[in-house]
Design a protein around this nucleic acid. Structure first.
Length: 256
DNA sequence: ATGGTTGATTTTCAA
């Protein structure tokens, strides 16, 4: 069972890339972020033709998350973080093939100390409590998406430039991510690769991808119970090199 | 190299 995450940065623009990638990579479950589509405009028919059922939680212009599943049903769908009033469509959970899937588009936060940064930390605290409850109900749990946090210096092209004062790498953000992992979740990529230089996002500006000036901020977390089934995890850089790409690459894990 | 690019809707905002 291959479970993937991809921030597509507009599903309207990226649908051809998504369809090409689904056909090539054949994931069983895909979590999408930044669909930027109202639910009425979600391309459910085109994805059904490609063999994928969909659950989606979107809005106009910004944000938007979706879960796709090849074969098998999408069950017990939850849109948004329960009990957390949020105008932004950033979270979606569903059960597929007995695995609970939680798709997160974590707040970017813009700059340390800004209002958006406060919102990011409050959002992460609410997500933590929700995930704790979900984990108690569903031992087989995968939490994945665009976390907008680089876990440590190996996940940053220039740790001197990306430190405690920077958004995506500040100590409060990294501590919030650690609190999620302390619920009994594992950063699947790090179970297979301990080296640096592996990124999932490259800025469109300044030829970031060509120069590999990236960050690893897209993560697939697997619960303790799933760890014995984990056979592989990785980042698929190829779609980032396609014409008119998303600024993020798909990330994935494989369960035996 | 303190810039640069992309997307959705504007006359900027968010990333």
């Amino acid at each position: 069972m291959k479970i993937a995450s991809w921030n597509v940065n507009s599903l309207n623009v990226r649908l051809p890339h998504l369809l090409d990638w689904l056909a090539a990579a054949r994931p069983d479950v895909v979590a999408l972020q930044e669909t930027k589509l109202e639910d009425a405009r979600f391309p459910a028919e085109a994805l059904a033709q490609a063999g994928y059922a969909c659950a989606f939680h979107g809005q106009k212009t910004y944000n938007g998350v979706a879960i796709l599943a090849r074969e098998g049903a999408i069950e017990d769908v939850q849109a948004g973080i329960p009990g957390f009033a949020d105008e932004q469509a950033r979270a979606l959970a569903a059960t597929v093939g007995g695995v609970r899937i939680i798709d997160l588009y974590v707040v970017n936060g813009q700059a340390v100390g800004s209002e958006k940064y406060d919102y990011k930390l409050r959002w992460l605290a609410a997500a933590h409590d929700w995930i704790a409850a979900e984990r108690a109900r569903h031992p087989d749990l995968v939490v994945l998406g665009d976390f907008n946090i680089a876990p440590d210096d190996r996940d940053v092209h220039d740790p001197a430039a990306w430190g405690d004062d920077s958004i995506l790498t500040s100590s409060a953000e990294r501590a919030a991510l650690r609190r999620l992992l302390e619920l009994g979740l594992h950063d699947s990529f790090r179970l297979f690769e301990s080296g640096g230089g592996h990124f999932s996002w490259w800025d469109y500006r300044a030829a970031g991808f060509r120069r590999n000036l990236g960050l690893r901020i897209d993560l697939v977390l697997a619960s303790d119970a799933l760890r014995p089934r984990l056979t592989a995890a990785g980042i698929d850089r190829e779609p980032r090199a396609w014409e008119r790409p998303s600024d993020h690459a798909p990330v994935w894990l494989e369960l035996g």
